[in-house]
Amino acid sequence: MPTILSSLRAAFDQKMPAPVEAKHSATRQVIALQTAAGPVWTPRDYAALARNGFMRNVIAYRCIRLVAEAAASIPFAVTCRGETMADHDHLRLLKSPNPDQSGTALMEEVYGYLQTAGNAYVEAVRLDGEVRELYALRPDRMKVHASRDGWPGGYDYEAGGRRTSFRREEDGFMPVLHLKLFHPLNDHYGLAPLEAAGNAVDIHNAACSWNKALLDNAARPSGALIYKGPEDAANLTADQFERLKSELQETYQGQANAGRPMVLDGGLDWKPMSHSPAELDFIEAKHSAARDVALAFGVPPQLLGIPGDNTYANYREANLAFWRQTVLPLASRAASALSGWLCGDGEAITPDTSGIEALSGERSARLDRIMRADFLTDREKRVALGFPADPVMENDDE
Rank of each mutant, 00 (worst) to 15 (best):
P17Y: 03
A86E: 15
G305T: 10
E247P: 03
N52H: 13
I64Y: 00
T251V: 14
I59Q: 04
G160T: 12
I356D: 05
D100K: 13
H275P: 00
L248T: 10
I31V: 14
A206N: 13
K271V: 15
G38Q: 03
R243T: 14
G266E: 13
C343D: 01
D265W: 08
A37M: 06
G129E: 08
L215G: 11
F282R: 05
A86H: 15
L134M: 06
Q249C: 10
P17Q: 13
Y46C: 05
K95M: 15
L33K: 14
A290Y: 03
V40K: 13
R92W: 04
I306R: 07
A71S: 11
K180L: 04
P388F: 08
R51Q: 14
P351A: 02
N310I: 00
E398L: 10
P139C: 03
E362A: 12
K23A: 09
D397V: 14
Y252V: 10
A365N: 14
L359E: 08
F182S: 07
P277S: 02
V78S: 01
F297I: 08
N395S: 15
T3L: 12
D156W: 09
K286C: 06
M371Q: 13
A207W: 01
V67R: 00
S102Q: 06
Q253W: 09
S222T: 11
P388C: 03
L94K: 04
Y312T: 09
L5G: 02
A70M: 03
S339H: 05
K381H: 04
E133I: 02
F322R: 00
A294S: 12
V293C: 04
L338K: 02
M107V: 06
Q101K: 08
N119L: 01
P329T: 07
L280K: 02
D45I: 09
Q101W: 03
K15N: 07
